[in-house]
């Protein structure tokens, strides 16, 4: 399984993602520049955190217009795995691959800390190595992470079990329904504000993020073959 880590101008968690997947999990990983226009040969795509295009206009709004984006949209529509953390999540909503939007934290503050989360759905490509309703800890670091969607969209997310991660303790940003991460309807696109790539080694003090990548590596290849068929 070969994984693309897309690098936008202003991405700053691309190396963390690369190291988590390659050095820690032993996966084949390549950086793909935002200037490229195809993802041929890749089985999964990762959008890193950071401040793509300086967060100008709205977080993730400008990245939507980069060269690589049509290829990412096509890749997702084929049912292949796409993952976005933090700014990557914001980009996925702006690109219309995930419903809703991320708005400024209710506190108006940049929040950087480790928070407890509940794994709400352990049947996705990205979460099979977690137990149902398992409580895990992951770091967050964002100023614009308050998930918002209209009532109808929220109800649909809940009904389809698209809410994958929920804040278990105090809600750090004011997100509706304590949402921390969601998938699209078909479950192959996951966006989340927390940073699993920052919690993959004991020396980092936390390994709760590791199983997300291991789940993907275990399930992703199968998903890609199904999508191609």
């Amino acid at each position: 399984m070969k994984i693309a880590v897309v690098v936008f101008p202003g991405s700053n968690c691309d190396i963390d993602l690369f190291e988590a997947l390659h050095t820690v999990c032993g996966a084949a990983v390549e950086y793909v520049s935002h200037k490229n226009d195809n993802l041929d040969g890749f089985d999964a795509v990762m959008l890193p955190g950071g401040f793509s295009y300086g967060d100008y206009l709205r977080c993730g709004a400008i990245a939507r217009f980069s060269n690589i984006m049509p290829a990412i949209v096509a890749f997702a529509k084929q049912g292949k795995p796409v993952f976005g953390t933090c700014n990557g999540f914001q980009i996925l909503t702006e690109a219309g691959l995930l419903p809703g939007a991320l708005k400024q934290n209710d506190s108006l503050k940049f929040v950087c800390k480790t928070v407890p989360l509940t794994v709400e759905n352990n049947q996705t490509l990205f979460t099979t190595q977690y137990k149902e309703k398992e409580e895990i800890d992951l770091p967050i670091a964002h100023a614009d992470g308050s998930y918002y969607a209209d009532e109808e969209t929220l109800a649909e997310l809940e009904e389809n079990q698209q809410v994958v991660f929920r804040y278990a303790g105090e809600n750090p940003n004011g997100s509706l329904n304590n949402i921390a991460g969601i998938t699209n309807k078909t479950g192959n696109v996951l966006g989340m504000m927390p940073h699993p790539e920052r919690a993959v080694e004991a020396i980092l003090g936390n390994q709760d993020g590791l199983r997300l990548f291991k789940s993907l590596l275990e399930n992703g290849k199968v998903a890609t073959e199904e999508a191609v068929r």
Binding site: L57, A61, T93, E94, P99, A101, K103, Y148, A149, D150
Partner: peptide, 8 residues
Amino acid sequence: QLLVNFNL
């Protein structure tokens, strides 16, 4: 197409 995010 650009300036407004109609979700919000």
